[in-house]
Amino acid sequence: MRTVIFRTIAPSLAAIMLVFSVFVLLRGHNEPGGGFIGGLIAASAIAIYGIAAGVTEVRSAIRVPPLNIAGFGVVIAGFSGLLSLGEHVPYLSGLWAFIPFGNSEVAISTPMVFDIGVYLVVLGTVSAVALALEETEEDHHD
């Protein structure tokens, strides 16, 4: 698998996929997209980079263990629901804030925070599984 062509193209491909995954994540509120599909794209990027550069390099590149990313995702997704506690609405209600930004305004909402949580959970768990599987394959080659 580790051809020169693949190794050359993989880092830029992974980078583009990661950026695209964030685009898909943020697009998700009113149009197709969202945290789940975004997280899957990001995890595929990591998996591709892992195939090209080796699992050890990926692990040092993402710095935190993938399972920690997933755990953090659950925490912020749960937290986004708890924000409705102060507004006297049921758990996980959508709360919006519109922040003026130049000529337009930026919409910040709890569904978005929740979606970011989902993104991190999917990214974390899927890349943890992918890296673990790639690791065992490497062991067999050695």
Partner: peptide
Amino acid sequence: MGGAFLLL
């Protein structure tokens, strides 16, 4: 959330 925090 507690389970996730324990994982962290």
